[in-house]
Design a protein around this nucleic acid. Structure first.
Lengths: 202, 202
DNA sequence: GTCTATATGACGATAGAC
DNA sequence: GTCTATCGTCATATAGAC
């Protein structure tokens, strides 16, 4: 019954949600306190370095949520194409109920802070690198060779991140569904080409 | 020699640059005035509706710059794959000199304002739709049929937007160069498949 | 751990002189 | 068209009581 950490945790969860929806500059500490219901006086006790410290930990939380969510959807399917199609269609469904995009898209905070907050930029860079690695790992599990998996890892990360922006802007999940389909085709064809390579073609 | 519009124009160009680098919430009117060197008292004369009006016109300027830049790079090549590879490698080069990303990536302002400023969200949505259309048009010029061109148009838009985020975060153009290569492959294979389709396969 | 009160500054916006 | 002055609001952050 360690309800001692509750306040800190609640602040962090609320901050994570707000940073994703409104960005770093668009979210004030007051709003975080109000929406979290946390005690007003507690924020600088739990986060002595203020807003930037909260953001760093929020990014870390987003990282955890995205990686775990992806892992769950991407494993145990029959092929890489099927796995990513399943994953992206699930993400699309989240965007349809436009209230909640928890654990998605650090693209906003990344591009906001790239030129102005080096520490936050670096945190985001690490998350993107983790995503690329995860995608590459998954592809190798489905039979891609390392080189091609790494090439595709960054491509998939970019496609997903871009599709999230489009879905947020359009306020529906259709762009993600389109990307799901195209990525599925790309993966099928890549795997065929890879096979040809092994059989001596080029 | 109509130097009368100069002030308005200078404000708009500076605002466009700053909004792209720092976002809508991260850019203050003071900064726009200071960096543009425009007269301090003139901003609400030229833009009676304040910051939001400036942003709307800035988005319109970004739209123009992106569409024209893309058009120039994408036409007159031997194939769609070659055209987009050329275009994206040029964009990548711009990201390497990380000072200037003029005319690129409305993704930041789009995701910042999607939930909070309906008019700005709508402006961004229209720009994305224009980009999709342009990409589809270009593909048709290189021989894609309409249906596939439109499917790919949104995919290409997402890939580019996502790759821009990665390049901004990593502070170099390499993600864009990787995407250029992968997109080139995707387009080649798509066009081959399309040929097979027409020959009765599927 | 939490509270209030407050310091300090930036913000967007307006009014009115010139 | 441009200027100054200023309003009101918000922001982050700190100090000190409880």
């Amino acid at each position: 019954m360690k309800e001692k950490h509750n306040t800190r945790e609640v602040i962090l969860q609320t901050a994570t949600r707000l940073f994703q929806r409104q960005g770093y500059n668009g979210t004030g500490l007051n709003q975080i306190i109000e929406e979290s219901g946390a005690p007003k006086g507690s924020i600088y006790y739990h986060f002595p370095n203020g807003k930037e410290e909260i953001a760093i930990e929020a990014i870390s939380m987003m990282r955890k949520l995205v990686l775990e969510g992806a892992e769950k959807d991407l494993t145990g399917k029959d092929s890489a194409a099927e796995a990513f199609e399943y994953y992206l269609n699930n993400v699309a469904a989240i965007f349809d109920l436009k209230s909640c995009i928890d654990g998605l898209s650090i693209g906003l905070i990344a591009s906001e802070t790239a030129f102005t907050h080096e520490q936050l930029r670096y945190s985001c860079e690490m998350v993107f690198k983790d995503l690329q690695s995860q995608h590459a790992q998954i592809l190798m599990q489905y039979g891609f060779d390392r080189e091609q998996a790494e090439e595709l890892g960054i491509t998939i990360t970019a496609m997903i991140e871009g599709a999230c922006i489009l879905s947020i802007t359009y306020q529906d999940g259709n762009p993600l569904r389109r990307i799901a389909k195209q990525l599925s085709l790309l993966l099928k064809r890549s795997q065929e080409t890879q096979g040809e390579k092994q059989n001596g073609n080029e």
